[in-house]
Amino acid sequence: MTNQTKSQFIAVASITSELSAVMVVAKEISLAAANAKAIAFRAGDKAKGFQPITDFINELAKETIELVTNINIYALVLYRLTVDEFQKTAAYNKFELATKMAGDATYAKSMQEPVNQAKLSMQDCQRQFKRDVSQLLGQLEAVMHHARAARVIAANSRIEASQAGEYLQSLQAVAESVDKAAHTIHDNVQRCRIALSIYRNS
C-alpha cells in the first residue's frame, strides 16, 4: 500500500471520527436550547428577546444533526470507494507486472485487454472519488455555515441575556455553551475539510 493510499484511508476514516464528536456537540446545543427555553419562560418579560433565540438555537442544532447524519452515510460510501480504488489499483499494478514477466510468452498479448480494463476501472474510481470528495466538502461547508450562524446567535444571546436581570448568569451560561459548541464544530469540520481538500484536485 502506498503512502498516498494510506493517507487516503486515514483521511476518510477520520471524517467519521471527527463528525461523531460534532454530533455529540450538536446534541449538547440542542439540550442547551431546551434549557434556555425553560429559563426564558421562567424569566418572562425580562427575557422576552431571548425566547425566539432559543428556537433558532434548537433549529440549528437539529439541522446540524441531520446534516452530520447524511455526511456520515456519505463518508461510508467514500470509504467503500477508497477500498474499491485500492483493489483496482492493486489489480492494475499486478496485471502490468504479469505482462512484463510474461515477456515473449506465446499468449502475452492477450493480457493487454485486462490491463486496459483495469486501468479504466482504476481511473473511474479515482474520478468518482474526486467527485465525491468535492460533494462532501460542500456538505461540510454547510455544517461550517451552521457553526458560524450559531456563533452569531451566541453573540445575540449575550446581549439579550444582559437585560434579563437575575436570569443574566443562567442565560449567559447558555450563550457561552452555544458559542463553545459552535467553536468545536467549526474546528472539527475544518480538520475534515483540510484532510480531504488535498484529494479534490490531486
Binding site: 512484463k100 514477466m101 492477450s110 485486462p114
Partner: peptide, 16 residues
C-alpha cells in the same frame, strides 16, 4: 503469486 502465475500461464493459454 498472481503476477508470476499469470505470466507463466500465458505460455500455455490466452487469458480468455
Amino acid at each position: 503469486l498472481f503476477a508470476p502465475m499469470m505470466a507463466a500461464v500465458l505460455h500455455h493459454a490466452p487469458v480468455d
